[in-house]
């Protein structure tokens, strides 16, 4: 898979990805703020796919970078080559509420680690085993992508319908 970036003077920036099918996926980032997606076959015939406003493009980017989890705008996420760090807000229906980090077995069940608990009363970096989850907590979760996805499926309502 080869990707390229080309300047289109006066128009914007063009990103191209060579697909396994032999086609090319082209994403043009227009200077005026919208995005254009198109498919180009090996003979150079172009099929326009979609034109996205910047919000829509951001949403598409989040969906593609995470598999199929739909997310709120405010959620932050960092992706690296193999692992990701994710911010998860605990809603009232999360099974974790009231449990301690040790009892819940989040690490054993998902493989992902809770590296911080963020809450108004006082956040904890590297929370101790006896730290107890509360409604409204934001957990910073780190692990391989699949582990973080397992974590989201088990403990958050943001989980994808599988």
């Amino acid at each position: 898979m080869a990707t390229r970036q080309t300047e289109l003077p006066g128009v914007g920036t063009k990103h191209s990805i060579d697909l396994a099918s032999g086609e090319e996926l082209v994403v043009v980032e227009h200077r005026v703020g919208h995005w254009e997606l198109a498919r180009v076959d090996s003979e150079g015939n172009t099929t326009p796919l979609a034109t996205l406003q910047s919000r829509e493009a951001g949403e598409l980017g989040r969906i593609l970078s995470r598999g199929s989890i739909s997310v709120e705008d405010s959620r932050k996420q960092m992706l690296f080559e193999e692992f990701s760090i994710d911010w998860v807000v605990l809603d009232d229906d999360s099974p974790l509420i009231g449990q301690t980090l040790q009892d819940s077995g989040v690490r054993a069940r998902s493989g992902a680690s809770v590296i911080a608990i963020l809450r108004a009363e006082g956040s904890m970096a590297s929370p101790p085993p006896e730290a107890r989850f509360q409604e409204g907590d934001t957990l910073v979760v780190m692990g391989h992508r699949e582990q973080v996805e397992t974590f989201l499926r088990l403990f958050s309502k943001l989980a994808p319908e599988s």
Binding site: T6, L8, P9, G10, V11, G12, K14, V26, V27, V28, H30, E36, L37, A38, V40, G44, T46, P48
Partner: peptide, 11 residues
Amino acid sequence: RAARPETETVL
């Protein structure tokens, strides 16, 4: 026409 291959050449 921005995504088309010949556009790079034109610009």
